[in-house]
Amino acid sequence: MNIFRLIGDMSHLLAIVLLLLKMWKTRSCAGISGKSQILFALVFATRYLDLFTAFISAYNSTMKLFFISTSLVTVYLMYFKFRATYDANHDTFRLEFLVVPVGGLAFLVNHNFSPLEILWTFSIYLESVAILPQLFMMSKTGEAETITSHYLFALGSYRALYILNWVFRYYFEGFFDLIAVVAGCVQTILYCDFFYLYITKVLKGKKLSLPA
């Protein structure tokens, strides 16, 4: 565990808490893509199956359980409790366009052709593109609530911090996982446009509105 990973994990945690708080306080999931949230639940459910096969640390297990359970709660809140506020008309990204190619790629390019390993690889690839329905939705509506942009900034920062963690681990531990690194870089690149808007607008007190 190094400082980059710890801050990255905390940023990931903060993102999820921010999203849940936004929904709970406003009793609404307006502006949030339910499709991205379904993908995140799928990401956690397929990646953390090793909860049952390996024990790494109490920290590791606790975080995994937190991510799985909160992602399920988020999907429940969006599709059941606050369904009336869900903006389905703008959440029109086709999930099969992500899940099918990512599934195919996980079968072809993985560290080891075993069920758990393929599911882990699927999860890593899927996470890298899971935010696309959310970004697509924002580009359709042309704006985002400030709390939603804080959520996205924390969520995007987490993988960027993991890249620094991988650089650190490569030099000091000889650790290198090509699949995670490439997917992590793709994931971070997808956020760059948003990061730019966040820094130039939201941090200066303006609402995040996209150029037409």
């Binding site: 990973r5 994990d9 990931h12 090793d50 096969t53 390996a54 790494i56 640390s57 590791n60 975080m63 995994k64 991510f67 560290h111 080891n112 075993s114 758990l116 390993e117 882990w120 993991y162 963690n165 995670a180």
Partner: peptide, 10 residues
Amino acid sequence: TFQIRLKDEL
């Protein structure tokens, strides 16, 4: 081999 990689990252 069937050795499972230990994944310590989240």
